[in-house]
Amino acid sequence: MKWLAIRLMSPVGLLVLWEVLVRLSGSPRAPSPSTVFVAAGELIASGELLAGLSTSIVRVLAGFVVACLVAVPLGLVMGAVRSVERNLDPVVESFRPVAAIAILPLVILWLGTGNTAAIAIVAYAAFFPVLVNTISGVKNVEPSLLRAAHTMGLSPLTRLHAVLLPAAMPSILVGMRIALGVAWTAIIAAELAVGAKSGSSGGIGQMMFVFYAYSIQLSGIVVCMAAVGVVAFCLDRLVSLCLTFITPWSNAR
């Protein structure tokens, strides 16, 4: 009981403090917990919140799948063949520190502000964590496993899917987990920035921008922020569930 009380003390305390501060400030626009709850009810009831969220989630998943389709095979090859890795590494390392948001203006120039651009941004953001973790997963495969497979005369293709892939799988999935988190952040940023540039591509990020710039409804912004957090949390839990389900032998966090 005491343990629960300690755990709940600080969040409840923060909420109360927030409410009191807003009441004291007397600002009619400032969002307080009570107005946020009302706004949340309205946004959920009208379906706006779910529509915005689902647009963003679909984009993230689409971009994520594209990234995995490219990064996993490439990572397998780069991890398995030393000369390929040596030769491609400079390009990968040159692009890796460039954030997805930084290439957003270029993507807008090339692809506009619609779904394609959003998916491209997400795919770029998700690509590097998956690639890097796939490479390191393949490189860290127990050499004796590979030698055993060799000795038993397995063909390269069989070696790939019977030995290399399962052994590298935990690391690949860790990369995917990181990638999904990064991708979710990237889509919010992209939609925010695009929202600032007009265009009506929807999504939760743009919804927030509209609340800020046009309807000046700050409680709505806070609701969106909370929704962003909830989705991030759920996506992370989903991937870590997959992790324990697909690779029960690994204890990777």
């Binding site: 626009r29 952040t185 919010i188 700050l218 922020m225 962003v228 991030a232 992370d236």
Partner: peptide, 25 residues
């Protein structure tokens, strides 16, 4: 840890970038 875990776990998933509109205000 007990006192801080919940607020941290609640705030952490909210990306810093999602704070931009509120921070603008």
């Amino acid at each position: 840890e007990d006192a801080f875990e919940l607020p941290i776990e609640l705030l952490r998933p909210i990306a810093g970038i999602a704070w931009i509109p509120l921070a603008l205000f």
